[in-house]
């Protein structure tokens, strides 16, 4: 097409990545092995288990929760999580009256240090277009039906500001310790497309 910036690239994206890596390596601008170490961090260390620990701490330590809701970036860093795409964090709390839901309508902004890389649906057109206009229908597709009496608040993430939902602690978990609580917390509960279910019996 006329507006295209250059000759059409091959349809196989694997070939295109290989071409870029190969060119940059020939120019000594890239050390492919060094990239592996970075990628592996996101495959093994950075993911929603981190956010789950933040949530469990907030559920068990009221003073931590207070810090988390007033200065999330600093409170999350207390547990060792910080860095790229989490430089400025805001945590929003679900209550019996308010349910929070995160989206990035413009692209894919997501709090990497606590949730890892976003799932495909979070970055795709249906969720991004619909979350802000029909959140109840969207939540229903995730299996979450909320009564009309519950207010839904949508938080549209930006490159500068990333959100995380502090879900409600489920009933029946009064005797659980922090570690056991963290195991109950799912990625979707911290995005707001699910609630945290109680322990299975």
């Amino acid at each position: 097409m006329a507006s295209h910036r250059h000759s059409d690239p091959p349809s196989d994206p694997a070939l295109r990545v290989k071409a870029l890596e190969s060119l940059l390596t020939e120019k000594k601008l890239l050390e492919p092995a060094a990239l592996d170490a970075l990628i592996e961090l996101f495959e093994t260390k950075i993911g929603p288990r981190n956010g789950a620990k933040v949530v469990a701490r907030a559920w068990t330590d009221p003073t931590y929760k207070k810090r988390l809701l007033s200065d999330a970036t600093a409170a999350i860093a207390e547990l060792g999580y910080s860095g790229m795409q989490g430089e400025d964090m805001v945590v929003v709390e679900n209550t019996p009256a308010v349910h929070n839901l995160l989206v990035c309508t413009l692209c894919s902004c997501y709090p990497w240090p606590v949730l890892g890389l976003p799932p495909v649906w979070y970055k795709a057109a249906p969720y991004r277009s619909r979350a802000v206009i029909e959140p109840r229908a969207v939540l229903k597709e995730f299996g979450l039906e909320l009564p009309e009496s519950i207010e839904i608040r949508i938080w549209d993430s930006t490159a500068e500001l990333r959100y995380m939902v502090l879900p409600e602690r489920p009933a029946g978990t009064e005797d659980l310790k922090e570690d056991a609580l963290a195991k109950l917390v799912t990625r979707d509960a911290m995005i707001g497309t699910a609630k945290v279910a109680g322990p299975s019996r």
Binding site: V103, T105, P119, A124, A125, P126, S129, R130, I133
Partner: peptide
């Protein structure tokens, strides 16, 4: 700028 746009269909979560 997709926020509020119609017609993108269901969310396919995996």
């Amino acid at each position: 700028d997709l926020g509020g746009m119609h017609g993108h269909g269901p969310i396919n979560s995996e």
